[in-house]
Simulated assay, not measured.
Amino acid sequence: MKALPEENKRLNKRLQDFRKEAHIQQQEMADYCGLSKNYLSAMERGINKCNAHVLISYAKKLNVSLDVLTGLSSTGKEAIIPELKTVIENMSHENQKKLLEILNILDK
């Protein structure tokens, strides 16, 4: 079996790191992506290829942009943790405004 190029291995390692950081088990991610756990495990280790469908599935499940997931964009200060983003998106507009007021006070 031909080894994957180094940039593919780095991407696959990023997928593994993001998944682990989100406390998502391999089986859960494999099910979400429509893969077997064995394929996903080999993919994260750089043995199997990651196609566009899998990459998009990871981004959706992890609630991160493709740019951040692939390393094209920084995960620095501009990144919002997924849990916070989900809570804010599910808030009413009125509560979002209240939260913004609180955040402005905290940021002073």
Rank of each mutant, 00 (worst) to 15 (best):
E101T: 08
L35Q: 06
G34M: 08
K61C: 11
H93G: 12
C50P: 01
A52W: 04
S92T: 14
S41M: 08
D67T: 06
P5R: 11
A42D: 15
S92A: 07
F18R: 02
L99Q: 03
E78F: 10
N51C: 03
E101K: 10
K77V: 09
E78I: 10
I80G: 02
R19F: 08
H23S: 09
G46T: 08
S92M: 04
G76F: 02
L62Y: 00
S92P: 07
Y32Q: 07
Y39R: 04
L15K: 00
S36Y: 05
K13V: 06
V68W: 01
K77E: 12
A3G: 10
E44W: 02
I105R: 04
K85L: 15
K85Q: 15
K97Y: 10
A59Y: 03
K49E: 14
A3H: 13
L15N: 04
H53R: 11
L106G: 08
E94H: 12
N90Q: 14
E28G: 00
I80K: 01
K98E: 04
I24T: 09
H93T: 14
I102K: 06
Y58I: 02
V64H: 05
Y32N: 03
Q27M: 03
K77Q: 11
N12D: 03
K98W: 01
T75V: 12
M43C: 15
L100K: 13
G76Q: 04
C50K: 02
I47A: 05
E6G: 07
K108T: 05
N12A: 07
N12L: 13
E94R: 12
Q25Y: 13
L99W: 00
Q25V: 11
A59K: 05
D107C: 03
D31N: 15
M43G: 07
A3K: 15
Q27G: 05
R45C: 07
C50D: 01
K9T: 12
E78G: 05
L11N: 09
S74D: 13
S41Q: 13
K98N: 02
I105M: 10
K98A: 01
G34T: 04
N48W: 07
M29W: 00
L106V: 09
D31P: 06
D31F: 07
K49N: 13
K9A: 14
K60W: 01
K97G: 01
K108D: 09
I56S: 00
N48H: 14
H23Y: 02
E6F: 07
Q26C: 06
D17E: 15
S65P: 08
A79T: 10
H23I: 01
H23N: 14
Q27D: 14
V87T: 13
T86I: 11
A79K: 11
M43K: 05
E44N: 07
